[in-house]
């Protein structure tokens, strides 16, 4: 469990990136920090592994204050995946994945063996092992990044807009695979994104930030969609534009799902009960059949 207690971060230029945030990241759950740029979400993430130190307040991991821990050791024990992968361009794929285990003193040969297995886990062909990052596609680079983040088998995985730089099709693929991976691995994941759809797909707990590093709302995806605390959140998640308020039209035999602006969003899955679904529509959780078509 990671806990933030009244954490504030002010940068030397006077901007407040994070403003008095208290927050709990439950163990083995995925918490998504979401907000527009400049909302302090990346700073939040970087305070966990002490890439940034807070101006005031405290951060604890399993009851231990991170400020008392050696930053280098702390970082080696936490997985980190970033946008544009941040791979070392002069090292091959296996060596990139093996970086942290080797830093921690594991024998190179053993670390490489483990890297190869991790390549299987994240869905990379072993044939790519001796390639350099520059020779991979964006999606492949991100997979290497995820494998590297997992290499030391950390309990915590920090992900900073990891899929922000890949095209939408590959992004969707990587997102579903992360959900699958998390089901197997059960890590405590902190995931930063500005994409609310991505947040709803991946997160168990969603934290929405306002500009200036202020928490607007914390809750499960369903909570937030059903009860946005204010106009800002409603607008951010898109309820106000009717993007997510769907209704049924057409004949009872062949109902069509339509959004509030009259755009046809999809059809009901075979066997769904139109009456039940119609009630469920205003708050489509991740599993609601109509939602997939709408996003």
């Amino acid at each position: 469990m990671i806990e933030f207690r009244s954490v504030t971060k002010q940068f030397p230029d006077g901007t407040t990136a994070v403003d008095n945030v208290s927050l709990v990241f439950p163990s083995r759950k995925t918490t998504v920090l979401v907000g527009s740029s400049g909302s302090g979400k990346t700073t939040m993430l970087r305070m966990i592994n002490r890439m940034v130190d807070p101006t005031s307040g405290s951060i604890e991991i399993d009851g231990e204050r991170v400020s008392t821990l050696d930053p280098v050791k702390l970082r080696r024990s936490i997985g980190y995946v970033m946008q544009n992968s941040g791979l070392l361009p002069h090292r091959t794929v296996v060596d990139n994945i093996a970086t942290v285990p080797v830093l921690r003193g594991i024998k190179k040969k053993e670390a490489r063996q483990r890297s190869l297995r991790l390549m299987d886990t994240v869905g990379l062909e072993r044939a790519l092992a001796e390639r350099y990052p520059g020779q991979l596609s964006g999606g492949q680079q991100q997979r290497v990044g995820v494998a590297r983040g997992l290499a030391a088998d950390p309990n915590i995985l920090l992900m900073d807009e990891p899929f922000g730089a890949v095209d939408p099709i590959v992004r969707a693929e990587l997102q579903t695979e992360l959900v699958r991976l998390q089901r197997e691995l059960d890590k405590t994941i902190v995931f930063v994104t500005h994409d609310i759809d991505e947040a709803f797909l991946i997160g168990d707990q969603i934290v929405i930030f306002r500009p200036g590093g202020i928490v607007a709302q914390i809750g499960s995806p369903a909570d937030i969609l059903a009860n946005p605390v204010d106009a800002f959140v409603a607008s951010f998640v898109g309820v106000d534009r009717g993007k997510r308020s769907l209704h049924l039209e057409g004949t009872p035999e062949t109902p069509v799902v339509v959004d509030s602006e009259g755009r046809v969003a999809g059809v009901l899955a075979a066997g769904s009960n139109p009456l039940l679904i119609a009630e469920a529509v205003p708050q489509p959780g991740a599993g609601a059949p109509a939602q997939g078509a709408a996003t």
């Binding site: 024990s77 980190y80 970033m82 941040g86 791979l87 361009p89």
Partner: peptide, 17 residues
């Protein structure tokens, strides 16, 4: 690339490393 250096730090490399 600053990002590469940032990533190296985030992985837990010391300044010398």
């Amino acid at each position: 690339d600053r990002e590469t250096v940032d990533a190296a730090r985030a992985l837990g490399m010391t300044g010398w490393q």
